[in-house]
């Protein structure tokens, strides 16, 4: 009759299939990439030989095509994250302070683009920013400019694309912290004579820091490995590491170097990823 303690223990067996799946589909492939990164490129099929040398890493660290792309990625992802914060914070605040009945709809509007194809959203900007695009042709029609201005294939377009694509990731965690903030705190400050701006900087802002950090990590981590945006909107001065990895694989067909880049990128992102996981566990 009393099978409960046994059953409670047996639930643990549920972990096993999931663990096996993760081992086969995540751990083994990543380990394989790390192993191939120590090998050497050849002409055969597959185009590499196993080995144990750090030559590919040395190449990545020596050639500025590679390490320069790491730096460019960090810089572009960092600046874009900051812009996302500046654009996203007031939006999150606006949603948190709107009537509860309207909040669900506003949140839906934030999330909807995230469900829409990433490629389509980048494509939408392509049509606006091109030399013959809508912005340039409109500016020329009203006579503000004579020649098309360079809106695309530069750092401006890449930043714009990243901010556009990743804005929901910034808004949602900030909104989550603002929503949980006890309105009584803000009311108390105002009853005691604090002006709205002062109340904001002294109470609301400091309490929303965890949401900002979570949002910043959620934008920075994927943006730094971005391929589509620098590929379609960027130019020679916005060579990001995700695109360099892509070219190394598809054009140079150098698997070991591509694997070395992937391993280094994963290692560099491990810090931000672990920081995010810690925040997630604390419930942000």
């Amino acid at each position: 009759m009393s099978t409960a303690p046994w059953a409670r223990q047996a639930r643990r067996a549920f972990v096993l299939p999931a663990f096996l799946w993760l081992g086969a589909t995540v751990a083994a492939p990543l380990a394989l990439v790390a192993a191939i990164s120590l090998g050497e490129a050849t002409q055969g099929a597959p185009p590499f030989e196993w080995g144990f040398s750090f030559a590919n890493y040395a190449l990545v660290l020596e050639d500025d095509i590679y390490w320069g792309a790491f730096l460019t990625s960090a810089r572009i992802a960092g600046t874009s994250t900051a812009i996302c914060l500046l654009v996203g914070y007031p939006m999150a605040l606006g949603i948190a302070r709107s009537p509860p009945t309207r909040r669900a709809f506003l949140l839906f509007l934030v999330v909807l683009p995230f469900w829409t194809s990433f490629l389509v959203r980048v494509y939408a900007w392509l049509g606006l920013l091109r030399p013959t695009g809508l912005i340039n042709s409109t500016l020329q029609a009203v006579g503000l400019i004579d020649e098309p201005i360079g809106l695309i294939a530069n750092a401006f377009a890449v930043h714009l694309g990243i901010v556009y694509a990743y804005l929901p990731f910034m808004i949602l965690p900030i909104y989550a912290t603002l929503e949980r903030l006890d309105p009584a705190l803000v009311e108390a400050a105002q009853d005691l004579g604090s002006k709205p701006a002062r109340t904001f900087w002294r109470i609301t802002f400091p309490m929303s820091v965890p949401g900002m950090v979570a949002g910043a990590l959620l934008v920075f981590i994927p943006a730094s490995g971005e391929f589509v945006i620098p590929d379609l909107l960027g130019g020679p001065d916005t060579q990001m590491i995700g695109r360099v990895l892509w070219l190394e694989f598809f054009q140079n067909r150098d698997w070991p170097v591509a694997c070395a880049i992937a391993t280094m990128l994963a290692a560099l992102l491990a810090g931000p990823i672990l920081a995010f996981d810690r925040l997630r566990v604390r419930g942000t």
Binding site: P222, S224, G225, F227, L265, A266, D277
Partner: peptide
Amino acid sequence: FRLRALFTLLLLAPMVLPEVILGLSMLMT
């Protein structure tokens, strides 16, 4: 449970790692 930290890490890795790394690792496999 045993190895919970490893479990969480492996579970979340595909969500947070750049897609170029995931694609490359799957193809190598």
